[in-house]
Simulated assay, not measured.
Amino acid sequence: MGHDDLPSLELAFPGPERDRGVAAILSGRKTALTGLLAIFEHAGEAVPQTGQWYSVLDSEGRPAVTIELVDVRVLPMKEIDDEFARAEGRGYSDVAQWRAAHEEFFQSEGVSEFLGRTPVIDDGTLVVAERFRVVESA
């Protein structure tokens, strides 16, 4: 299956944050990602399923790496643990750092603009916690 046949996945917004995320996947440091369930719902997109493959795009919109989801769970933010936070490959030493970064992103101008509101982020906020493996680099 070629990159063109796969649904695409874009991390964060184009620019340094996306580039760091793609680099972390390519280096093997990043094996997990988290999405805000409200974003999927607002976009009318189904929650990803275990076994799905995605073409992860770089900031230029080009395929950078193909991943396969190996575990997908919808859960409240309070259930994310230190191990998952470290698997995000962004240098978080614990879930507190992960939480602070995700609250900042989920309440950022770009996300708020997309949703048409600034989301409330608390312990019960539902997130889509995904673990993946690299299938191939582009």
Rank of each mutant, 00 (worst) to 15 (best):
Ala24Val: 04
Ala138Gln: 06
Leu11Pro: 00
Ala87Glu: 06
Gly2Tyr: 12
His42Leu: 11
Ala23Leu: 06
Gly2Lys: 14
Val72Leu: 12
Val111Asp: 00
Gln97Leu: 13
Trp98Cys: 01
Leu115Gly: 06
Val72Glu: 05
Ala43Thr: 03
Val134Arg: 02
Asp122Ile: 15
Phe132His: 03
Ile25Arg: 00
Val128Asn: 05
Thr34Ala: 10
Gly15Asp: 11
Met77Trp: 02
Glu45Pro: 04
Thr31Tyr: 12
Gly35Ser: 15
Glu45Ala: 14
Gly110Pro: 02
Ala38Trp: 01
Gln107Pro: 04
Arg29His: 15
Val74Asn: 14
Ser93Asp: 10
Val120Pro: 00
Gly35Ile: 01
Arg20Pro: 03
Phe40Leu: 14
Ser27Ile: 09
His42Tyr: 06
Val120Met: 09
Val127Leu: 07
Val22Ala: 05
Glu68Asn: 08
Ser55Lys: 02
Gly35Phe: 02
Ser8Cys: 08
Ser55Thr: 06
Glu10Gln: 15
Phe132Trp: 12
Asp81Gly: 07
Ile25Met: 05
Gly51Leu: 10
Asp94Lys: 11
Thr34Ile: 09
Gly21Asp: 00
Arg20Glu: 11
Gly28Pro: 12
Val134His: 05
Ala43Gln: 13
Arg117Ala: 10
Ala38Cys: 03
Glu10Ser: 13
Gln49Leu: 13
Asp5Asn: 07
Arg90Thr: 04
Ala85Ile: 01
Glu103Met: 03
Thr66Ser: 03
Pro7Cys: 07
Gln52His: 07
Pro119Asp: 05
Val47Ile: 12
Gly51Phe: 04
Phe40Trp: 14
Glu88Gly: 05
Glu104His: 13
Arg86Asp: 11
Val56Glu: 02
Gly61Pro: 09
Asp19Arg: 01
Ser108Asp: 09
Leu33Val: 09
Val127Asn: 02
Gln107Ile: 07
His42Ile: 07
Ala23Trp: 03
Gly89Gln: 01
Val111Ile: 14
Ala138Phe: 14
Leu75Tyr: 11
Gly124Pro: 04
Phe40Asn: 10
Ile67His: 01
Ala101Lys: 07
Phe13Gly: 05
Asp82Ile: 02
Asp4Ser: 15
Lys30Asp: 00
Arg117Glu: 11
Asp71Trp: 10
Arg99Thr: 12
Tyr92Ile: 03
Gly15Ile: 05
Pro48Leu: 08
Asp81Tyr: 12
Leu69Arg: 10
Gly89Cys: 09
Leu69Ser: 06
Asp122Leu: 08
Ala23Ile: 05
Gly61Val: 08
Glu136Ile: 06
His102Met: 07
Glu136Thr: 15
Glu130Asn: 08
Arg90Ala: 13
Leu57Lys: 04
Ala64Asp: 00
Ile39Lys: 13
Asp82Met: 03
Leu36Val: 01
Gly51Asp: 08
Val72Arg: 03
Leu57Arg: 02
Gly91Arg: 13
Ile25Val: 10
Thr118His: 10
Leu36Thr: 00
Arg29Cys: 10
